[in-house]
Design a protein around this nucleic acid. Structure first.
Lengths: 210, 210
DNA sequence: TATATCATGTAATCGGTTACATGATTAA
DNA sequence: TTAATCATGTAACCGATTACATGATATA
């Protein structure tokens, strides 16, 4: 078997191009952070790499916008082949998720640290996930409506549901997932913290109230 | 700043050794799959690598058990320095979680595929996560109680809670997380499938009931 | 004055995966 | 007879991260 020519992140960038029309690498990085940060992250260097890769595959085209006093903007748009690749990817079964959450690992072996350290780890987690929930709330209020109208290039998307200009149903599903996930995670973190703080007091350490 | 000398997976292996006493690389791989698969995965090659790394760091010691007709078992145990490293790791704030879930990426750009393909993706996800839930249920029934009693080598763990031989509270917390997570995920998958299947029927495609 | 934004890239590194390699025993 | 289990490793590759590189404009 040959190695695949593209990876999830490739399709992440491709999907953004398909949905929000012609964009530069810089724009894509920002969109990526805003729209896809919940399920995938990417450094800008990687996005530029994927653009190069996709250009070689013929999935995107590039047009140079000249600028003064700044590097030229290189604006990419999806090609017909790119659209086909995107749709084709949708037909393959997804790879299985691996969590790889360091916080969970630390809690697993919590018995090898003082409970105060575990509590601190849980509090860090709470801060992180509360902030994410906050970010999601902010982002969903205005999922980026780009300056350019969608589908400026190429034919309109044949599979798009007519939703009377409402939000794309898939975006709504994903943001619902993100909320559910963060809320479940946070609920668990708070409960765990309570248990650790309660059980963490050894009788020998406990202060006598008088 | 220097690069860190160890990574989450290093501490995963180290934690297993701290908890379940002397083990071979082969044993560790199986334990890893059983205990840590929910939050981290590892190929056997990587586990052998981590053992080598930790031996150089002085975190583990190796003893060779000779065998006939099979490669010798190399049995590793954690050292005092290893215990200190594990506890020290617990004091550092955890790295933030990145999901990297291809299924979610596919759903995000669901509008570029026929709804039947999205439904199929969701069904694959349902199968995967139902199976995980099933696995977790099986594993929690007997979290591996090794042949050797815990803490055969070295002093007993000073931070371990006395739980009257009940399950470690941290293991209980983690398995609760795993359940909560899978249940939340599954609930969302079923709801999403329903929405996609309903909305996915174009009036032109819909069969007239008579 | 210093930070943030705009704008693009290259280079080095490395954690993690996949494939390669070997070979006996036991159960279906 | 085929597959699984036991048992250990090496080698190649690569996706992803981090650091390096440049430099103007606008804002606090």
């Amino acid at each position: 078997m040959d190695r695949p020519e593209a990876y999830p992140i490739t399709y992440g960038v491709l999907g953004l191009l398909a949905y929000w029309g012609p964009l530069s690498g810089y724009d894509l990085k920002r969109l990526f952070d805003q729209v896809l940060s919940a399920m995938w992250s990417a450094a800008h260097s990687q996005i530029y790499n994927e653009l190069k890769r996709m250009k070689e595959l013929g999935w995107v085209e590039m047009e140079r916008e000249e600028q003064e006093s700044r590097p030229d903007r290189k604006v990419y748009s999806i090609t017909r082949a790119g659209r086909e690749a995107l749709t084709n990817w949708q037909q393959q079964p997804p790879a299985v998720l691996q969590l790889r959450d360091e916080l969970l690992l630390k809690i697993t072996f919590g018995s090898f640290a003082p409970p105060s350290a575990i509590a601190e780890t849980l509090r860090t987690g709470i801060a992180i996930h509360e902030q994410r929930l906050f970010q999601y709330r902010k982002n969903t209020q205005y999922i980026p409506v780009p300056d350019q109208p969608r589908q400026t290039s190429g034919r309109p998307n044949p599979y798009a549901q007519e939703t009377n200009n409402e939000e794309d149903i898939y975006f709504r599903l994903i943001s619902r997932f993100a909320f559910d996930f963060e809320q479940t995670y946070l609920k668990w973190l708070y409960e765990a913290l309570e248990i650790v703080e309660k059980g963490g007091i050894n009788p020998s350490e406990a202060q006598d109230p008088l």
